[in-house]
Nucleic acid binder design. Structure first.
Lengths: 243, 243
DNA sequence: ATACATCACAATGTATACATTGAGTGACCG
DNA sequence: CGGTCACTCAATGTATACATTGTGATGTAT
């Protein structure tokens, strides 16, 4: 079932397993058995092993002692820490970008994205284009990571963002009441602009503090979503949390 | 040749490949071919693939487009950034430890390590026990990461430290003149004590700043080692740098 | 009842044959 | 001369048989 996408068996298996893990079909702590999965996906053990290997690199699986893989499980505290970590790393990227300086072209480019985000709000009381916001927001965060010009830093940021619940756009989906969400998005956009300003004027400490604080929006949204059940959709990747 | 250690073929191959990479026998950018390596190590392709997969997780290899693996290469700038990153992450661990608080037992334990490091210096003008210092220093940094109590943060710190040149004890080896080294180690030890003090008195910002600055010792040592050739041994992992 | 030895099976580890792909090479044609 | 087609080969992708190992069940002796 669910032949999903991918040209090689390995890619298909990787995709399929990832879907099952973040979707909650394979809860945290579940041990994955090569033979069972191979039969279920109707392929041999070889591509299954390869897929599990890649997912371990991604951070979704852990190698078990004595061989084999286990679905990694996250506590609520882990999610908080992952968001904090993203803030720290994006803050570092912003600080380094400010300290080392970035080209006018790069500033222009990221300002262009910020301007595009503005258009997602539309007129007062008109509905927000969430999908477009989410996509542009992801682009902003990617460009922010690029600004520091350090592959090492970029790589670690990408790593943290690969955890679905720590992604910068995760919070956009689990929106609660329309009014509260609108306020949040406006605040986020203000921070976007301030971060770029700080980088452009070489204010490293300010850029770092702003980017760090910006990540806390995701944390607040997570806490709101967890307490009151006044939310619309569940946040992405919540199935990974065992707590 | 060189059967090295490990119970399974995969472990042996992983160990052997790692040695060749950090030792410079396989320079950055080198493409690894399964068949060639399998013949050379006198095993089949399967454990070779498995070993390469693990080394990719470790960050020593990159998956190439269209399959296969390439030895990851680092520029001098990358090394600087990796050290900076370690400082940022250890700083975060120290700050979180201070903010959330740690048990008296944990403080006692890490203070014990600091006290042991003192004994490596001996009397004035007596030689420093570098091996012991290096080992205890590594223990201190491990305990520091543990203090924050966050598996997510610990994991990322471990990840950065796995790059040989970014390890907290890397600088101890490439020591230059005895007098300069002695000064450096005394300063480092002062910082060790200050970091623990700050964590104990819940001074998060101070703990973070100290840990961040502490990592810069590695950077200074790297720059000294790079410029003047007055150094004794080469720094570990320098073979990875292509520049 | 507990401790320990033994066995059996299930899971991963390994080797290898075969399939597939993709990059390079050469011939052919416009 | 330039382009494109087909061919070739080498490399990875895949399947599968077999080896090995670690764990739990089963038994017995104390």
């Amino acid at each position: 079932m669910a032949e999903s996408k991918g040209s090689t068996h390995t890619k298909r298996a990787t995709y399929e397993l990832r879907q099952r893990i973040v979707g909650g079909a394979l809860p945290g702590g579940t041990r994955l058995y090569e033979v069972a999965l191979a039969e279920e996906l109707d392929i041999s053990r070889t591509p299954v092993r390869e897929a599990m290997s890649r997912l371990a690199e991604e951070g979704l699986l852990e190698r078990a002692r004595g061989g084999g893989f286990v679905v990694r499980s996250f506590t609520y505290r882990d999610v908080i820490d992952a968001i904090e970590l993203r803030g720290v790393l994006e803050g570092t990227a912003a600080r380094i970008a400010a300290e080392r300086g970035v080209s006018a072209d790069e500033i222009r480019k990221i300002r262009g994205i910020v301007a595009q985000i503005d258009t997602c709000f539309g007129a007062i009381d008109s509905p927000v284009d969430f999908d477009r916001y989410s996509e542009l927001n992801a682009t902003f965060h990617n460009l922010l990571a690029d600004l520091c010009g350090s592959p090492i830093i970029q790589r670690e940021i990408a790593r943290v963002k690969s955890l679905p619940f720590a992604s910068p756009s995760a919070f956009v989906l689990g929106h609660a009441t329309s009014a509260a969400t609108h306020r949040t998005l406006v605040m986020a956009q203000t921070q976007h602009r301030a971060i770029v300003d700080a980088i452009e004027s070489r204010e490293g400490a300010r850029a770092e503090a702003l980017a760090r604080e910006h990540a806390r929006i995701a944390r607040e949204n997570l806490e709101t979503n967890r307490n009151g059940s006044d939310s619309g959709q569940p946040l992405p990747g919540m199935a990974l949390i065992v707590d």
